[in-house]
């Protein structure tokens, strides 16, 4: 699986081992294992319901798994106390799909919130740091606006600025280009690449946008129905012969197999076997 020549020598920042999760009685992730290296951009792909959002929520420690372990920066977050998890979260940043900016605060206040809560810096310093991050995401001078006054792409940029304010070692991005026009979403891809190169962050991107994934990914993980279908470089993914992956790459719908009896039963709402027996 080693597509990166030096991967063996690089530090792993995320290790997921045999992760199994349930939502109610339904099994979502069915034993997913993957690892991610320092300074790499790992794109997690998959259709709706593939479990990629669930994987992300578990990597962030928002949900507890049924079994398996998740090591971030060498420490298992599934067995951490609340205090330890808070310390871990100071070392990661998250840009949510909707931006999740607090609507009652200005953009700058949003960006400064982690500093305000976790550091003893004075306000002046925090404001300067917020301005630096706004420059990084190319939103200079927008700090005084309220989130409602920003466009969709600007909200996502501001969310990135908040995510990187504590200079995290790992950055998570959930669907960065969802709902954006191609130009804006290309600019966000550039931003992700720039963050990795300039701040040597390790970045996990969850997306279903093929074009964006191919542009930014060092390696791609493909999830399908709760299982890891593929993990490797972009080139290796293109060469992959698995039909489900080919369908994903060529945007073909999976052909559903039709069982005639089952189909009829679904339509009539009756159990045909029982009726025959009666």
């Amino acid at each position: 699986m080693s597509n990166l020549p030096a991967s063996a020598a690089r530090d792993t920042v995320i290790e997921v081992e045999n992760l199994v999760t349930h939502y109610g009685a339904r099994m979502i992730l069915k034993g997913v294992s993957l690892e991610m290296f320092q300074g790499e951009i790992l794109v997690v792909m998959g259709g709706s319901g593939s479990g990629k959002s669930t994987l992300m929520r578990h990597l962030l420690g928002l949900e507890r798994p049924t079994s398996g372990c998740i090591r971030l920066l060498g420490r298992d977050i599934t067995r951490m106390s609340h205090g330890e998890l808070v310390d871990m979260r100071k070392r990661i940043g998250v840009a949510f799909q909707t931006g999740a900016l607090f609507s009652s605060m200005t953009v700058a206040e949003n960006i400064m919130l982690p500093l305000f809560e976790h550091t003893d810096l004075d306000t002046k310093t925090m404001e300067i740091m917020a301005r630096i991050k706004l420059e990084v995401v190319n939103l200079p001078g927008f700090g005084h606006l309220m989130p409602a006054e920003l466009s969709g792409g600007m909200v996502k940029r501001a969310a990135f600025a908040r995510a990187i304010i504590m200079d995290p070692q790992i950055l998570f991005c959930d669907e960065p280009s969802a709902g954006l026009d191609p130009v804006v979403s290309a600019a966000l891809d550039e931003l992700i690449l720039r963050l990795r190169d300039a701040m040597s962050m390790s970045i996990v991107v969850v997306t279903h946008e093929l074009e964006s994934a191919f542009k930014i990914a060092d390696r791609i993980a493909v999830l399908d129905e709760g299982q890891l279908l593929f993990l490797g470089s972009v080139d290796a993914l293109r060469r992959e012969s698995n039909p489900r992956i080919q369908n994903l790459l060529n945007r073909r719908a999976d052909e559903a197999t039709v069982d005639a009896d089952e189909y009829l039963q679904r339509l009539t709402g009756e159990d045909l076997n029982n009726r025959a027996a009666r």
Binding site: A100, L101, F102
Partner: peptide
């Protein structure tokens, strides 16, 4: 409720803010 559907509650949690 609004904060929940906008993922703002999740955002607080992952910033280490209870």
């Amino acid at each position: 409720g609004t904060m929940k559907i906008n993922q703002e509650l999740d955002a607080l949690s992952v910033m280490g803010i209870n």
